[in-house]
């Protein structure tokens, strides 16, 4: 069972490394969106460092959303998704493997890139650990929650806008605790409450999302 899990992760990683634009584009998008904010609100460092947690978090959320659309789409169009549904392994486990692989190429690079953007946005240095930790936990939850939306919309023609409509309201708690955590760290407060809540959301999503996503996949593919 775990074999199928790791095989699927390896396969997905190989595939996305070969099609590098798939995971590079959301990253570039992330950087550009954050760059737009100083241009939009002015280069005042005080203001920038104040809004930095929110801006970085919203940009990370949108970049995740952008990458989510491809989570099942290629497999759906070339038919390998049907093979996965037919396989004897439990589907939630396979969905979890796909989501994990997806996070490794879309969420993790966001986390790695975020200190650079924190620098651009004049985020105080002391908030950096909180930013990294909250982004790790947060993007994991976003990928898991988003997998439900991606599974629901995979068979639809104009699925990507619909995907945004469906999952953005569900992303709100993660955004609130994530940016709240960074903001608290930036002003020198304790962040363990926010981090615990983020971890709670992550575990809740880990426990429920793969099941919901596999039910949704079965519905989308049967049609």
């Amino acid at each position: 069972m775990l074999d199928s899990f790791s095989t699927l992760i390896k396969r997905d990683l190989t595939l996305s490394l070969r099609r590098s634009s798939e995971w590079l584009n959301p990253l570039v998008f992330f950087v550009i969106v954050v760059t737009l904010f100083p241009l939009g609100v002015g280069p005042d460092g005080q203001l920038l460092s104040e809004i930095a947690p929110g801006v970085i978090w919203v940009a990370a959320l949108l970049a995740t959303l952008l990458a989510l659309d491809g989570l099942f789409r290629d497999d759906y169009s070339d038919g390998s998704l049907e093979q996965l549904l037919l396989s004897p392994h439990p589907l939630p486990l396979l969905v979890l493997a796909k989501t994990t692989a997806h996070w490794l190429v879309s969420g993790l690079p966001l986390v790695i890139l975020s200190p650079l953007l924190a620098l651009l946005m004049q985020l105080p240095l002391q908030a950096l650990p909180a930013l990294l930790l909250s982004l790790v936990l947060g993007t994991l939850s976003l990928s898991l929650i988003g997998s439900i939306g991606a599974a629901l919309t995979v068979g639809l023609k104009r699925g990507s806008v619909l995907l945004a409509l469906l999952v953005l309201p569900l992303f709100i708690p993660v955004l609130i605790f994530g940016s709240g955590c960074v903001a608290a760290a930036a002003s020198g407060f304790e962040t363990s409450a926010q981090l615990s809540l983020l971890a709670g959301l992550f575990f809740l999503a880990l426990a429920l999302a793969p099941w919901a996503a596999s039910a949704a996949l079965r519905i989308s593919v049967e049609a």
Partner: peptide, 30 residues
């Protein structure tokens, strides 16, 4: 919006049902 964009009635019924149930779990959290 999800209902409006799925043409097949059986798929529409079950896909939107999953979304409504996911929403019910999320509303208290939100």
């Amino acid at each position: 919006a999800l209902r409006a964009s799925i043409d097949n009635p059986a798929t529409r019924a079950r896909a939107s049902a999953i979304l409504a149930l996911v929403g019910v779990v999320n509303i208290p959290i939100i």
